[in-house]
Design a protein around this nucleic acid. Structure first.
Lengths: 125, 125
DNA sequence: GATAAGCGCAATCATTTGGTTGCGCAAGTG
DNA sequence: CACTTGCGCAACCAAATGATTGCGCTTATC
């Protein structure tokens, strides 16, 4: 029980940024795609982009704040690794919304079928 | 020729808005959730939020620009309906990235198993 | 020990975003 | 016809965002 509370506190402290917001930026998405295959040195990531190292560093900080990236210090280098479990929040929301949306069509379908049978009943009078 | 370039720029700027960016805002996500069940009048949507009608109108404009919402004029009212097929772009990206990420673990797993069998071989010497 | 590499932090800046208010127009309603 | 309702548009504003530059601290290399 206590452990659960600590877990929650931990989550609140670490995960303090919106995942949706984090993946809104195309550069950040590219960073994720790059290090999805394997961890990379921060400088190595920055070199593949046009913008400066500091800009990329900031992006990675944002990704770290929502738990999408984990950084491990190793000597003077910092290895960035993705942890894409947090993306479940995104796909969950998408599937949930789509489900509701499709459900609407189902209801409409029922309505149209009801209408059809009723019209047929009227025709039988 | 110049006109064509301007057309392309226009297309990129106006028609094509990033879906990721559109769903980055929590208010817009709430709007989507609200009208996922069925179309709503613009004013009706706005009334469920604290912010002004114009603010919501702007959000819906953004959602329209990336095809997530379709607006139908009906007399003086505008009915807003979602069209969540565009969200596939999001879930596709998520699943693609996660796939790559999990693939990495698989490779690591193979490596560890290789290491294990080799150690066992060494032990058999 | 000098130098270079890898990186964070703070200051700064232009642009974007999310919101407001005021106005006006067209569609319904008394 | 006067009035209300539903809504877009434009102007405006504060805050956030994305990027840059300059500086300084470690850690590795010569």
């Amino acid at each position: 029980m206590i452990a659960l509370i600590f877990m929650i506190i931990f989550f609140i402290m670490i995960i303090r940024r919106d995942v949706f917001q984090a993946i809104a930026d195309p550069t950040r998405r590219q960073i994720i795609e790059k290090i999805a295959a394997g961890p990379m040195n921060l400088n190595a990531i920055a070199e593949t982009f046009d913008s400066s190292r500091q800009a990329i560093s900031k992006h990675i900080q944002i990704l770290t704040e929502c738990g999408l990236v984990v950084v491990t210090q190793k000597g003077r280098e910092r290895y960035c690794e993705v942890c894409l479990e947090q993306l479940d929040e995104v796909s969950d929301w998408v599937s949930q919304s789509k489900k509701q949306w499709l459900h609407r069509f189902e209801k409409l379908d029922h309505y149209l079928q009801d209408l059809k049978t009723k019209t047929q009943d009227d025709g039988n009078h």
